[in-house]
Design a protein around this nucleic acid. Structure first.
Lengths: 242, 242
DNA sequence: CGTTAGCTTGAGGCCTATCAATCATAGTGG
DNA sequence: CCACTATGATTGATAGGCCTCAAGCTAACG
């Protein structure tokens, strides 16, 4: 039980880092989350995250690894609408009836913490509401900034923007030090995020490498000069942050 | 006062229709919204909607006309991220500090109802929370479906998808009868929504007209055969509805 | 050592952007 | 009543970014 409690504690750390901008949590509020952890699911590469449809009594938090939400078109094309990183909620905004359209899948090995909403709410209903609301709004901001990227940026800027976004979001939860982080996405998956073909993703990545803007040997990414990459991406760090 | 009350009542109708899927409101809950109306702002064409930044004690609901939220890039390009229709909330998901990036502007004459959150909450806190949450989720669904459209559909499908979406959303609030509705957006604004140049929007519209899929003389739109347009758009009515 | 997944490279073509001009309509002021 | 102007829609020619198809390459793995 001590180890169980300990792992729940560790698992919640990225979550706390993620929702910190919503207002810092005191020790008691952190406990509320930690004690609400029912289980921590290990999930293999490319498997669906078992997020239940609304109304759900559980919160699902990605605590390790990457995941994404994707939607497929009749012609076989696929668009990844969300990239989920440690500390992100997997679950909300799933509609009552269309879970089948957009499912959440892991990318590499991942772990998902399942929390009981009522347990958190019992100890800090306002805090829980504020955290969830903030997380939702953050999600919407990310979606909007990605819309801008897909709508008005060319492939080079899109790739640069994506890497900038991943860097910042990972840094916020302590997973990117000195411009270095891990990105398990294949070039095909990158294409599905950015609305490009894998072939073109490849060419753009090579160009960015040749320009010294990035080092990318999957899964390792290094951004030597963030400011320069941001310039290519028209990236404004604040545009999707709270 | 009777007229004031009456106009608030009328103004809330599209809102009620919009959030109906979140769970039907009883007469008392409707009253809570109606009584919370502080004022109804008339806003001229192409003017900013005065949405205050978070934390706000007010809700802003578009009750008449169209509006949109847009973001501009340094090179002058612009992307419209949200199209707001009667019954939609204008305000949430505005970040604390970046209101200047994305502002809400009207498209043609519009009217915005300003509601006091506390007044609604006093009479139905759960109902208000549920409604807002539902509206947020609906917004996120729309953003995702638009991401799919921008990422994986060609110009023809994008235009078809957009018109299908507008039709359904307007129908939900009683503003599209028999495939007929009003769309005040210029072709340039359509381009900003769809990530296309106005010139290309024009050509695509002409093609859709020639194919008998739409009638479009701004601002009047007629969709003679919804099913056929949906097929072109890969439109699934449920993908952004609750 | 064959197989597989993912990355790389090349050639050709299409979709959309760009640049530029014309047209239509409505509003304005003399 | 008629220039004159402004906004938006339309049309044409050209260019370029990205897609498509196809093949070869590499590394990991049983």
């Amino acid at each position: 039980m001590a180890t169980r409690r300990g792992s729940a504690e560790k698992a919640c750390e990225p979550l706390f880092a993620r929702i910190a901008p919503a207002g810092p949590l005191d020790a008691d509020e952190r406990r509320a989350f930690i004690d609400a952890v029912v289980e921590i699911l290990p999930i293999d590469n490319d498997r669906p995250v078992p997020v239940r449809s609304w109304p759900s009594f559980h919160l699902h938090v990605l605590v390790e690894g990457w995941a994404y939400r994707a939607q497929s078109l009749p012609d076989g094309a696929r668009q990844i609408t969300d990239v989920l990183l440690p500390g992100d909620f997997c679950g909300f905004a799933l509609s009552t009836s269309h879970d089948s359209f957009q499912d959440v899948r892991t990318c590499g090995h991942a772990r998902v913490a399942v929390l009981r909403k009522d347990v958190v709410a019992a100890r800090g209903p306002a805090m829980l509401g504020r955290s969830l609301q903030w997380a939702r709004d953050a999600e919407a901001r990310i979606l909007r900034s990605r819309l801008v990227s897909l709508g008005r940026q060319d492939a080079r800027a899109r790739v640069a923007y994506f890497l900038s976004e991943m860097h910042d979001r990972l840094r916020d939860v302590g997973l990117a030090e000195g411009g270095t982080f891990t990105c398990p996405l294949t070039q095909e998956q990158l294409g599905d995020v950015l609305g490009l073909t894998p072939v073109h993703v490849n060419r753009v990545l090579q160009k960015l490498r040749a320009d010294g803007l990035i080092v990318f040997n999957r899964p390792d990414v290094v951004i030597p000069d963030l400011a320069r990459l941001h310039a290519v991406a028209n990236f404004d760090g604040g545009s999707f942050e709270g």
